[in-house]
């Protein structure tokens, strides 16, 4: 389900790290920005997720205004059904580069790391894809535990096209 949320401004050259909170797990979320100010480039990344002890879920979003004038924007996103794979732990401060393998090309997979342990932020980035000679496909994902404690998490994803 697609959504658009908030109306915000950001000065030229400025970067802000946001957190968007849901009262419970919204399902896999793809989050971006709808720029309103013409001619202003707004860069965005969604680096991570945190689950809190009350069940609320935070998605972190970093916004940068690369333009030369203040810019206005909305957050925009979409949630959808997803698969959940693997149960993993990772020490505080550690980063691991994973590969997930499909027997063929599964389509464009959006993959995230969903924390199980409360109050620990897990950051992730899907760095690339590789097709092998046997037709199998690897998706690479880098996972970082930004919390102070060892964390448990799952991979969660969805083929969007």
């Amino acid at each position: 389900m697609a959504w658009t949320w908030g109306t915000n401004t950001l000065g030229a050259g400025q970067t802000q790290r946001w957190w968007l909170s849901w009262p419970k797990d919204p399902g896999i979320e793809m989050i971006g920005v709808q720029a309103i100010t013409s001619g202003a480039e707004i860069d965005f990344t969604s680096p991570g997720i945190q689950v809190n002890s009350d069940g609320s879920v935070l998605y972190f979003v970093t916004i940068m205004n690369r333009g030369s004038v203040p810019a206005q924007y909305h957050f925009t996103g979409s949630s959808r059904g997803s698969w959940v794979w693997g149960t993993n732990t990772l020490n505080a401060g550690q980063t691991q580069r994973w590969w997930l393998s499909w027997p063929g090309f599964p389509g464009l997979e959006i993959v995230e790391a969903l924390p199980v342990t409360p109050s620990c932020e897990i950051d992730f980035a899907s760095a690339g894809v590789q097709v092998n000679t046997d037709g199998s496909t690897l998706y690479f994902i880098t996972v970082t535990n930004r919390g102070k404690y060892a964390v448990e998490y799952h991979f969660r994803g969805s083929a969007i096209c």
Partner: peptide, 23 residues
């Protein structure tokens, strides 16, 4: 221990992932 992983689908939906690894 730095990390522990148990492979396999956890939810109802099938991921299609056959294997995985860590570099």
């Amino acid at each position: 221990i730095v990390s522990i992983s148990q492979f396999g689908d956890v939810g109802d939906k099938i991921s299609g992932i056959t294997t995985a690894g860590i570099q």
